[in-house]
């Protein structure tokens, strides 16, 4: 029995030491990797200083060409779009990480159906943010909501679980090709987009996500940030009421809502899409010009109203 207890204690103690040491090594790798997400997270956390930040998931990452928007607005722009930042919980964490050291003037939030629909795995992709656990109380509250708080609190190694291999690979191979202040063009695909399909309206609305959309807007307001909701083009047809939920939140929060999906922008140009949700570089550049023009107008209208 004594022998067994000694073994158990040694195992727990040894695992604790290895976990902490491994966590330190993985933190170093996370900071020095040239993978897709690592450098962006590092920039968001340590260096961001731009006036305008674009927030969202992979569609934001591949759709907003920072230099084009910056030229048009005359303001510095950084595209904080993160692959895997799939809903409002992740965007809320990102905004809080930014606010720890910098307050931008404008935040454009690219939204998707996953920002308001009911989904079993709503917190699954929060694991990408785990290396930044413990940096912001408000961000940590989202980990708590997703049931991840204690896992990250107990194990430092586990915080790097989601991106461990790609972070290590990113030490050898850079995946930052074509970086333009956070914008990275989508890879070309050999398979062309097929016939356009129509998506039905989403009726199952997640009230907790709506609450977080309001919290996001409130946080921006409290920090004097001008918030804009946007939905970039998709090669999927939707009805006019598809984004009514977002439109209502935008209306309640007095936030401009630039919706290019319902309006069907580029749906006659399949050559601009890599797949039904992502534009190719050419499409992103065209879209960024249109968006920058409209954003300028929306900000001017906002200024006049204030």
């Amino acid at each position: 029995m004594k022998k067994l207890l000694l073994s158990i204690l040694f195992f727990i103690g040894g695992l604790f030491v290895v976990d902490r040491l491994g966590g330190m090594v993985m933190q170093w790798i996370n900071v020095n990797t040239h993978d897709v997400l690592g450098p962006k997270f590092k920039y968001i956390h340590d260096e961001i200083h731009e006036d305008v930040v674009m927030l969202g998931a992979s569609r934001c990452h591949h759709h907003y060409v920072s230099s084009i928007i910056s030229d048009s607005l005359g303001m510095s722009v950084y595209n904080c779009g993160l692959q895997g930042s799939e809903n409002i919980y992740s965007h809320y964490v990102t905004l809080n990480l930014i606010l720890e050291r910098h307050t931008p003037k404008v935040v454009c939030l690219e939204l998707m159906p996953s920002d308001f629909d009911v989904n079993e795995d709503s917190f699954a992709k929060l694991c990408y943010f785990a290396p930044y656990f413990g940096y912001s109380e408000r961000a940590d509250s989202v980990f708590q909501l997703g049931g991840l708080y204690w896992k990250y609190k107990i194990s430092h190694l586990y915080r790097y679980n989601a991106k461990a291999t790609s972070n290590i690979a990113g030490l050898i191979v850079s995946r930052q090709k074509g970086d333009d202040h956070g914008y990275i063009p989508a890879k070309e695909s050999s398979i062309s987009v097929g016939e356009i399909v129509e998506a039905p309206d989403i009726t199952d609305i997640d009230e907790q996500k709506i609450h977080y959309l309001h919290l996001f807007a409130k946080l921006c307001r409290e920090n004097g940030i001008r918030l804009v909701f946007t939905v970039s083009p998709k090669y999927i047809a939707v009805g006019p009421s598809f984004y009514d939920v977002l439109r209502n939140v935008a209306h309640e929060e007095n936030v401009p809502f630039l919706d290019y999906h319902t309006s069907g922008l580029f749906q006659d140009r399949p050559d601009l899409f890599r797949d039904d949700k992502h534009l190719v570089d050419k499409g992103a550049r065209l879209y960024s010009s249109v968006f920058a023009h409209d954003l300028k107008k929306a900000l001017r209208v906002g200024e006049r109203n204030n």
Binding site: F11, G14, L15, V18, D19, L157, Y158, Y160, N161
Partner: peptide
Amino acid sequence: IIMTAYILL
């Protein structure tokens, strides 16, 4: 210990 840490990571 190392196998458990490997699994965690």
